[in-house]
Design a protein around this nucleic acid. Structure first.
Length: 286
DNA sequence: GCGACAG
DNA sequence: ATCTTGTCGC
């Protein structure tokens, strides 16, 4: 499907100032309200997929469909919302060749995977905090391009509104496609949690508010949540997730949606599967 | 000048 | 993100 805003693509060749200016445009074009009809219960994933069963083999820029009907006798609603998780693995080439990003997009409907897609894209710029979309945005768009399914919700690995200019990776990708999106990060880029996040029980959450680092929002604005998706009864402690709105989703709905997409593991299933598929696709190339 | 900083 | 075996705990 074509981009809704091709003019806002994250061009890696822009100067730093131009990148930041583009992010302000992205934030201005983004919506952090529930301008959709996504019900957490309607996208919930109840059973975690076994990654040991092996994922479908992938060729670059290719998508893999699943054998229909052989497994669960569940009647799939063709109208149910499609949730797509995107993630990437990185390949370090030998010597002269540039590194490459192997992106994966995994589509879910009714709690089950309906399609896998991946794409390999050369990386042009290094990782710079705050400018992640200019490094990984292109690769992600390539994976989404290889996907046949049309997403009703995108789950990105990284922040959305929790960003210096409220234009993190999830927000950027969401605006480009004008599709509801949420950002799921494993560490906090900026912002301040209302309460300490240490050793919290599963299901616990606290708002993350904008501080001085967030230049486009008033201090105190809720830009996301720290969310304890999983926790062990004793000893070892699991770090919380940092969930934020990407586009067309409120901060409250973003956590509720991610909560519904979790099935026993720290990461929501769409992200967990996309992570595994990106790794598998990378290994298949070696 | 120093610190902080998704993947 | 990536380099990697064992190991602690449910």
């Amino acid at each position: 499907m074509p981009l809704a805003r091709p003019d806002l693509r994250p061009d890696p060749s822009l100067s730093r100032d131009e990148m930041e200016a583009l992010q302000r445009d992205i934030a201005a074009a983004a919506t952090f309200d529930d301008d959709h009809a996504l019900d957490p219960a309607g996208v919930a994933v109840s059973e975690a997929a076994s990654l040991a069963d092996g994922l479908p083999p992938a060729r670059d820029g290719d998508q893999a469909c699943l054998d229909a009907g052989t497994d669960s006798a569940t009647a799939h609603d063709a109208d149910a919302p499609v949730v797509v998780g995107v993630d990437q693995a990185f390949r370090t080439d030998r010597a002269d060749a540039p590194d490459a990003a192997v992106s994966a997009a995994v589509a879910f409907r009714d709690g089950d995977v309906i399609e896998y897609a991946s794409a390999t894209t050369p990386l042009s710029i290094p990782y710079v905090p705050g400018l992640l979309a200019f490094r990984e945005g292109g690769p992600i768009l390539a994976a989404l391009d290889a996907l046949d399914a049309d997403p009703d919700l995108l789950v990105c690995d990284g922040s959305g509104r929790i960003h210096f200019r409220e234009a993190g990776l999830a927000t950027h990708v969401g605006v480009l496609h004008d599709v509801p999106s949420v950002g799921v990060a494993k560490s906090l880029l900026c912002g301040e949690p209302d309460e300490p996040t240490d050793e919290r029980p599963a299901g616990w959450r606290t708002p993350v508010r904008a501080g001085d680092a967030v230049t486009t929002a008033e201090t105190g604005t809720v830009i996301g949540h720290a969310f304890q998706s999983r926790q062990y009864p004793t000893s070892k402690r699991v770090n919380p997730l940092y969930v934020s709105p990407g586009h067309r989703v409120s901060a409250a709905s973003a956590v509720d949606l991610v909560d519904a997409l979790c099935a026993g593991y720290k990461l929501p299933e769409p992200t967990r599967l996309a992570d595994a598929y990106a790794d598998a696709a990378k290994r298949d190339e070696e």
